[in-house]
């Protein structure tokens, strides 16, 4: 008989797969971005099922809250001509036949490799699953979060400086890229017209 958490997991995983399919198929980039947000929240709930409250918080606040705003901004600022995806199944297969083949080969092989290795007896030896463990008490979850923080600072001490440096570099680099001085002469004809439409009229 399937238990409550297992059912929950199945529901969420179908939700995630549905979100991914929608992300790939919706006609507008903006829509793809908000389907991505939904997928990210679904993944966050799976993290919660793996008993990691703090990673849940990171996933929601950084991914679903922070990165997705960036993606939405980028989608809005660069919106131009949307890619017309083939509507019919046949046309879809015709257009993406080679990609589909590659993707199927990779997927099947990955599944076989991972599942066979996970199911082998060597892997099972001495392990038991903590995924979806609902017997954890509140104290234990407090204890886990606290110990994760302690571990992060004590045993993985370079992680936070590394991330901080990386994010600072990314921030400065992207600001530098975006606010770079540019002149209309450097632009392509399309953009020249867009930024300076009066010129076209004069011509």
């Amino acid at each position: 008989m399937i238990s409550f958490v297992e059912a929950l997991f199945l529901v969420i995983s179908f939700f995630i797969v549905f979100c991914i399919i929608m992300t790939l198929l919706v006609p507008k980039t903006m829509q793809a971005a908000y389907w991505l947000i939904l997928m990210l929240t679904g993944v966050a709930v799976l993290f919660l099922l793996a008993n990691s409250e703090i990673i849940f918080a990171f996933q929601i606040s950084i991914y679903a809250g922070g990165i997705s705003v960036l993606l939405l901004f980028a989608a809005l600022l660069t919106q131009h001509e949307e890619y017309e995806f083939p509507r019919s199944i046949l046309g879809f297969i015709k257009v993406t036949a080679s990609q589909l083949a590659i993707f199927l080969i990779i997927g099947i092989n990955l599944l076989i490799l991972i599942l066979t290795s996970v199911m082998s007896s060597d892997f099972r030896k001495g392990t038991s699953s903590q995924l979806g463990d609902t017997t954890l008490t509140v104290e234990e979850s407090f204890f886990m979060t606290e110990n994760f923080s302690v571990t992060l600072w004590r045993d993985f001490g370079m992680v936070i400086p590394f991330l901080a440096f990386l994010l600072l570099t990314a921030l400065l680099g992207s600001v530098k890229l975006v606010i770079r001085e540019w002149e209309i002469e450097d632009l392509s004809d399309v953009m020249k017209n867009r930024y300076n439409p009066t010129q076209e009229v004069q011509q």
Binding site: S98, F103, I105, I106, N109, L113, T116
Partner: peptide, 19 residues
């Protein structure tokens, strides 16, 4: 990207066979 993924697919197939 397609060529890269093609290589990956090849590699994975070989790995599966060896496995």
């Amino acid at each position: 990207a397609r060529w890269m993924m093609f290589g990956l697919a090849l590699l994975l197939s070989i790995m599966t066979l060896l496995y």
